[in-house]
Amino acid sequence: TRVETATETAWISLVTALHLVLGLSAVLGLLLLRWQFPAHYRRLRHALW
């Protein structure tokens, strides 16, 4: 049971790290898009909202 718990903890930390990385890359990508294509971003936002 001790090994299982350790594996579970490792998986949880791995998944958390993955989610953090994905979230950060998504935010960075959005910022980059907004910085590179302001007109396109505004049009996209206008279409979405």
Rank of each mutant, 00 (worst) to 15 (best):
Val15Ala: 09
His46Ala: 07
His19Ile: 03
Thr5Cys: 03
Gly29Leu: 15
Ala6Pro: 08
Trp49Thr: 01
Arg43Met: 07
Ser13Pro: 06
Ile12Tyr: 11
Leu48Phe: 06
Ala47Cys: 07
Leu31Ala: 14
Tyr41Asp: 04
Leu32Ile: 08
Glu4Asp: 08
Leu20Gln: 05
Leu28Asp: 04
Arg42Trp: 09
Ala39Arg: 15
Trp11Val: 12
Ser13Asn: 10
Ala26Ser: 14
Leu28Glu: 02
Ala47Ile: 07
Trp11Glu: 03
Arg34Leu: 06
Ala39Lys: 12
Thr1Pro: 04
Leu22Glu: 03
Phe37Tyr: 15
Val15Pro: 00
Arg43Thr: 10
Leu30Ser: 08
Thr16Pro: 03
His46Thr: 09
Val27Glu: 03
Trp49Arg: 01
Leu18Gly: 01
His46Trp: 03
Glu4Pro: 01
Tyr41Thr: 09
Gly23Ser: 10
Leu28Val: 02
Val27Met: 08
His40Tyr: 09
Ser25Phe: 06
Ala6Val: 09
Leu28Cys: 06
Glu8Asp: 14
Ala10Arg: 11
Val3Tyr: 04
Gln36Val: 15
Leu14Thr: 05
Leu31His: 04
Arg2Cys: 09
Thr5Gln: 00
Ala47Gly: 07
Ala47Asp: 05
Leu33Met: 11
His19Asn: 04
Thr9Pro: 15
Leu33Ala: 12
Arg2Gly: 10
Ala39Gln: 14
Ala17Val: 11
Gly29Cys: 13
Pro38Arg: 14
Leu48Glu: 05
Thr9Phe: 13
Pro38Trp: 07
Leu14Met: 11
Ile12Met: 13
Leu24Asn: 00
Val15Trp: 07
Ala17Met: 13
Leu32Ser: 07
Leu22Ala: 14
Ser13Ala: 12
Leu20Glu: 02
Ser13Gly: 10
Gly29Pro: 05
Ser25His: 02
Leu20Ile: 12
Ala26Gly: 10
Ala6Asp: 09
Leu32Val: 14
Gly23Phe: 14
Tyr41Pro: 02
Ala47Met: 06
Trp11Ile: 10
Arg42Asp: 11
Arg45Lys: 15
Arg42Glu: 09
Val3Ser: 02
Phe37Lys: 03
Gly29Asp: 05
His46Lys: 06
Tyr41Leu: 10
Leu28Trp: 07
Leu14Gln: 03
Leu28Pro: 02
Gln36Ala: 15
